[in-house]
């Protein structure tokens, strides 16, 4: 295979680091990335009239949007409990 120019090698190494960092995320954070990817794909699809397919989940809670939260369910509750 022909050797790539140094600039391209750097760019590809950067991509590799990025995908390793993504792979190391906790699963719930990967689902949040997936929601973003779905929204991006929806935006592209909308330009050719394709219907939206992204999941209607709240990225913070990963519950359906509009789900009432019980005590302790809010993602910031953990932080709030640490405050005096």
């Amino acid at each position: 295979m022909r050797e790539l120019p140094p600039l391209m090698q750097l760019a590809l190494a950067g991509k590799q680091r990025r995908r390793r960092a993504l792979a190391a995320l906790p699963y719930a954070d990967k689902v949040r990335v997936l929601l973003r990817l779905q929204q991006m794909a929806d935006a592209i699809g909308a330009t050719r009239g394709a219907p939206a397919r992204s999941w209607p989940l709240d990225p913070a809670t990963l519950l359906p949007k509009g789900t009432p939260l019980g005590p302790g369910d809010h993602p910031l509750d953990g932080d709030a409990r640490l405050k005096p």
Partner: peptide, 11 residues
């Protein structure tokens, strides 16, 4: 697969 590697688009 997402448990083991980076997220990929799926619906």
């Amino acid at each position: 697969a997402m448990f083991y590697v980076e997220p990929v688009v799926t619906y």
